[in-house]
Amino acid sequence: MNRNELQEVVTPAQSILVSTRPGEQSAGAPGSSGLSIDIVVNRQRRQLDVDPRASLLDLVRDHLHLMGTKKGCDHGQCGACTVHLDGRRVVSCLMLALQADGREVTTIEGLAGPNGSLHVMQQAFIDHDALQCGYCTPGQIMSAVACVREGHANSVAGIREYMSGNLCRCGAYVGIVAAIQDAAPRMQGAEP
Protein backbone atom coordinates (compact mmCIF):
# COMPACT_ATOMS: atom_id res chain seq x y z
CA MET A 1 0.00 0.00 0.00
CA ASN A 2 1.47 3.29 -1.01
CA ARG A 3 -0.39 6.36 -0.03
CA ASN A 4 0.85 9.81 -0.62
CA GLU A 5 1.89 11.18 2.75
CA LEU A 6 1.14 14.69 1.72
CA GLN A 7 -2.59 14.32 1.49
CA GLU A 8 -4.26 17.46 2.69
CA VAL A 9 -7.31 17.75 4.84
CA VAL A 10 -10.14 18.53 2.50
CA THR A 11 -12.61 21.15 3.51
CA PRO A 12 -16.21 21.14 2.26
CA ALA A 13 -16.86 22.28 -1.24
CA GLN A 14 -15.74 25.86 -1.49
CA SER A 15 -13.24 27.99 -3.22
CA ILE A 16 -11.01 30.46 -1.54
CA LEU A 17 -9.27 33.52 -2.77
CA VAL A 18 -11.43 34.33 -5.71
CA SER A 19 -11.06 37.42 -7.76
CA THR A 20 -13.29 37.96 -10.73
CA ARG A 21 -11.08 40.40 -12.59
CA PRO A 22 -7.89 42.04 -11.65
CA GLY A 23 -8.67 45.06 -9.58
CA GLU A 24 -12.16 43.84 -8.72
CA GLN A 25 -11.45 42.11 -5.48
CA SER A 26 -13.57 39.62 -3.75
CA ALA A 27 -14.02 39.43 -0.02
CA GLY A 28 -10.95 38.70 2.01
CA ALA A 29 -8.64 40.18 -0.56
CA PRO A 30 -7.92 43.73 0.49
CA GLY A 31 -5.55 46.05 -1.26
CA SER A 32 -5.79 48.06 -4.40
CA SER A 33 -4.04 45.83 -6.85
CA GLY A 34 -3.35 42.57 -5.18
CA LEU A 35 -4.73 39.54 -3.49
CA SER A 36 -3.92 38.83 0.09
CA ILE A 37 -1.96 35.77 1.01
CA ASP A 38 -0.96 34.30 4.31
CA ILE A 39 2.48 32.78 4.19
CA VAL A 40 5.19 31.68 6.59
CA VAL A 41 8.64 32.68 5.42
CA ASN A 42 11.65 31.53 7.40
CA ARG A 43 9.46 30.71 10.39
CA GLN A 44 7.81 34.13 10.31
CA ARG A 45 4.16 34.44 9.43
CA ARG A 46 3.42 37.18 6.88
CA GLN A 47 0.22 38.58 5.44
CA LEU A 48 0.94 40.13 2.08
CA ASP A 49 -0.86 41.70 -0.82
CA VAL A 50 0.45 40.29 -4.03
CA ASP A 51 -0.02 41.04 -7.69
CA PRO A 52 -1.67 37.86 -9.01
CA ARG A 53 1.01 37.66 -11.70
CA ALA A 54 3.95 37.80 -9.31
CA SER A 55 6.17 34.78 -8.92
CA LEU A 56 7.13 33.49 -5.52
CA LEU A 57 10.68 34.52 -6.44
CA ASP A 58 9.74 38.13 -7.08
CA LEU A 59 7.64 38.15 -3.92
CA VAL A 60 10.58 36.97 -1.84
CA ARG A 61 13.01 39.43 -3.42
CA ASP A 62 11.00 42.55 -4.20
CA HIS A 63 8.53 42.49 -1.33
CA LEU A 64 10.32 40.67 1.47
CA HIS A 65 13.77 41.89 0.38
CA LEU A 66 15.28 38.48 0.94
CA MET A 67 17.94 38.79 -1.73
CA GLY A 68 19.66 35.44 -1.23
CA THR A 69 17.24 33.75 -3.61
CA LYS A 70 18.48 34.53 -7.12
CA LYS A 71 16.98 35.00 -10.54
CA GLY A 72 19.06 33.30 -13.21
CA CYS A 73 16.55 32.37 -15.90
CA ASP A 74 13.03 33.07 -14.58
CA HIS A 75 11.81 29.91 -16.34
CA GLY A 76 12.75 27.00 -14.13
CA GLN A 77 15.85 26.19 -16.12
CA CYS A 78 18.72 27.03 -13.76
CA GLY A 79 17.71 26.37 -10.14
CA ALA A 80 19.21 29.58 -8.72
CA CYS A 81 15.83 30.46 -7.19
CA THR A 82 15.42 27.17 -5.33
CA VAL A 83 13.58 27.46 -2.02
CA HIS A 84 11.81 24.95 0.19
CA LEU A 85 8.03 24.93 0.11
CA ASP A 86 6.59 22.93 2.98
CA GLY A 87 10.02 21.34 3.22
CA ARG A 88 10.33 20.38 -0.45
CA ARG A 89 12.58 22.09 -2.95
CA VAL A 90 10.89 24.04 -5.72
CA VAL A 91 11.96 26.65 -8.24
CA SER A 92 10.32 29.80 -6.94
CA CYS A 93 10.37 31.51 -10.35
CA LEU A 94 7.88 29.02 -11.79
CA MET A 95 5.37 29.34 -9.00
CA LEU A 96 2.73 32.01 -8.66
CA ALA A 97 3.12 33.72 -5.32
CA LEU A 98 -0.59 33.08 -4.92
CA GLN A 99 0.08 29.36 -4.94
CA ALA A 100 2.27 29.72 -1.87
CA ASP A 101 -0.69 30.99 0.12
CA GLY A 102 -1.02 29.10 3.39
CA ARG A 103 2.29 27.39 2.98
CA GLU A 104 5.68 27.56 4.56
CA VAL A 105 8.66 28.87 2.60
CA THR A 106 12.28 28.54 3.62
CA THR A 107 14.93 30.54 1.80
CA ILE A 108 18.69 30.49 2.21
CA GLU A 109 18.31 33.17 4.89
CA GLY A 110 16.27 30.75 6.95
CA LEU A 111 18.68 27.86 6.76
CA ALA A 112 21.23 28.91 9.36
CA GLY A 113 20.45 28.41 13.01
CA PRO A 114 18.66 31.16 14.97
CA ASN A 115 22.00 32.12 16.54
CA GLY A 116 23.56 32.52 13.11
CA SER A 117 25.40 29.23 13.20
CA LEU A 118 25.85 27.81 9.74
CA HIS A 119 23.94 24.78 8.58
CA VAL A 120 26.16 21.73 8.14
CA MET A 121 25.70 22.02 4.39
CA GLN A 122 26.74 25.67 4.34
CA GLN A 123 29.93 24.82 6.21
CA ALA A 124 30.61 21.91 3.86
CA PHE A 125 30.29 24.22 0.87
CA ILE A 126 32.96 26.45 2.41
CA ASP A 127 35.20 23.52 3.33
CA HIS A 128 35.11 22.02 -0.17
CA ASP A 129 35.12 25.36 -1.99
CA ALA A 130 31.91 24.26 -3.66
CA LEU A 131 31.37 27.69 -5.17
CA GLN A 132 33.09 30.43 -7.05
CA CYS A 133 31.07 33.52 -7.92
CA GLY A 134 28.46 32.50 -5.34
CA TYR A 135 25.44 33.45 -7.41
CA CYS A 136 24.01 29.95 -7.83
CA THR A 137 25.20 28.96 -4.34
CA PRO A 138 22.03 29.67 -2.32
CA GLY A 139 20.03 27.58 -4.76
CA GLN A 140 22.66 24.85 -4.76
CA ILE A 141 22.62 24.70 -0.97
CA MET A 142 18.84 24.64 -0.72
CA SER A 143 18.83 21.86 -3.29
CA ALA A 144 21.65 20.01 -1.56
CA VAL A 145 19.85 20.01 1.79
CA ALA A 146 16.73 18.68 0.08
CA CYS A 147 18.77 16.13 -1.84
CA VAL A 148 20.05 14.67 1.44
CA ARG A 149 16.64 14.73 3.11
CA GLU A 150 15.09 12.98 0.11
CA GLY A 151 17.61 10.16 0.47
CA HIS A 152 19.30 10.86 -2.85
CA ALA A 153 22.75 11.58 -1.45
CA ASN A 154 23.82 8.00 -0.82
CA SER A 155 26.05 7.73 -3.88
CA VAL A 156 28.07 10.02 -6.09
CA ALA A 157 25.88 9.11 -9.04
CA GLY A 158 22.76 9.90 -7.03
CA ILE A 159 24.10 13.26 -5.94
CA ARG A 160 25.08 14.20 -9.48
CA GLU A 161 21.69 13.24 -10.86
CA TYR A 162 19.66 14.87 -8.13
CA MET A 163 21.76 18.05 -8.18
CA SER A 164 21.37 18.47 -11.92
CA GLY A 165 18.53 20.94 -11.54
CA ASN A 166 21.02 23.55 -10.36
CA LEU A 167 23.35 24.96 -12.99
CA CYS A 168 26.74 26.25 -11.88
CA ARG A 169 28.37 28.15 -14.69
CA CYS A 170 31.62 28.56 -12.78
CA GLY A 171 31.78 24.76 -12.87
CA ALA A 172 32.04 23.99 -9.15
CA TYR A 173 30.33 20.63 -9.55
CA VAL A 174 33.22 18.56 -8.20
CA GLY A 175 33.26 20.62 -5.02
CA ILE A 176 29.48 20.54 -4.73
CA VAL A 177 29.43 16.75 -4.89
CA ALA A 178 32.23 16.55 -2.31
CA ALA A 179 30.44 18.97 0.01
CA ILE A 180 27.22 16.95 -0.11
CA GLN A 181 29.06 13.68 0.46
CA ASP A 182 30.69 15.26 3.47
CA ALA A 183 27.58 16.89 4.89
CA ALA A 184 25.08 14.09 4.28
CA PRO A 185 26.09 11.79 7.15
CA ARG A 186 26.56 14.73 9.48
CA MET A 187 23.12 16.12 8.65
CA GLN A 188 21.46 13.04 10.16
CA GLY A 189 22.52 14.00 13.65
CA ALA A 190 22.42 17.76 13.22
CA GLU A 191 18.90 18.12 11.89
CA PRO A 192 15.72 17.82 13.91
Partner: peptide
Protein backbone atom coordinates in the same frame (compact mmCIF):
# COMPACT_ATOMS: atom_id res chain seq x y z
CA UNK B 1 1.59 39.25 -18.78
CA UNK B 2 -1.92 40.57 -18.35
CA UNK B 3 -3.59 40.16 -15.01
CA UNK B 4 -6.19 37.49 -14.56
CA UNK B 5 -8.94 36.37 -12.27
CA UNK B 6 -8.01 33.58 -9.95
CA UNK B 7 -9.96 30.91 -8.15
CA UNK B 8 -8.64 28.15 -5.99
CA UNK B 9 -11.24 25.47 -5.35
CA UNK B 10 -10.47 22.94 -2.65
CA UNK B 11 -12.64 20.09 -3.86
Amino acid sequence: MRSFAYARPLT
